[in-house]
């Protein structure tokens, strides 16, 4: 089974990044047979209909896998907001960050978001889990944030803790989500929009990506 072919296919269909990760260790028993995670990312600058675009890419990947005789489970980019179907119950069993780090497309930054070397955190992610024996990419096992703490300094709610992520403790809380949420809901009440995202925009990796494009 050739992962290259699938990647190329998804790239021509508009994916910014595609990676395959061995996610065996992160699977609960309901989906333990789906041990490859295909992480698909779309650069948010590309199109406003990012979510639709990702769902379309997922469906294409599913079709490709099915045609090759393999099972798959798509976890859509907005998985936390979907509750209309039974299958949505499985979405919370797996997170996009695991697929992204396992497929070597990024590490978890101090800001708690996936950081890709070229695009920073300005990406939207979707995951397709499958039992197809695709050759996995080399995973990230630790953070590359180094001494940089711009997001810690700029966070208006003081939520970003400044921890360095590593696979040894993948579930460490990087950001105090209560603080982050209360700031955003306060602003939403005031202006109708959360208006934050400093931790994305100040990240040098996010800015490099913008400049290069």
């Amino acid at each position: 089974m050739d992962a290259k072919q699938l990647k190329q296919f998804l790239h021509t269909e508009g994916a910014t990044l595609v990676g395959v990760g061995d996610v065996t260790k992160a699977l609960p028993k309901e989906i333990v047979h789906l041990n490859r995670g295909i992480a698909i990312a779309v650069n948010r600058n590309l199109t406003r209909e990012t979510v639709d675009q990702l769902v379309r890419l997922q469906t294409l990947a599913e079709g490709w896998l099915k045609a090759n005789g393999h099972r798959s489970l798509s976890i859509p980019p907005d998985s936390d907001r979907r509750k209309d179907k039974l299958i949505t119950k499985l979405y919370k069993l797996f997170c996009h960050k695991t697929a992204a780090t396992c497929s070597g497309l990024g590490w978890i930054g101090k800001n708690g978001l996936i950081i890709n070397e070229q695009y920073g955190s300005k990406l939207t992610w979707a995951t397709v889990l499958t039992d197809a024996p695709l050759g996995p990419d080399k995973p990230y096992i630790s953070s590359r944030c180094g001494d940089c703490d711009l997001c810690v300094k700029h966070c208006p709610s003081g939520a970003v803790q400044g921890h360095l992520w590593s696979l040894r403790n993948p579930l460490m809380e990087m950001v105090s989500y209560d603080k982050c949420r209360s700031l955003k809901s306060g602003r939403t009440a005031l202006k109708g929009k959360p208006n934050c995202g400093f931790c994305v925009t100040v990240c040098p990796y996010s800015r490099n990506g913008g400049a290069r494009k």
Partner: peptide, 14 residues
């Protein structure tokens, strides 16, 4: 079939 397939089949039935 595994759990994901069962749930997707159930969604189709609904």
């Amino acid at each position: 079939y595994f759990v994901p397939e069962i749930l997707m089949c159930a969604d189709a039935l609904y």
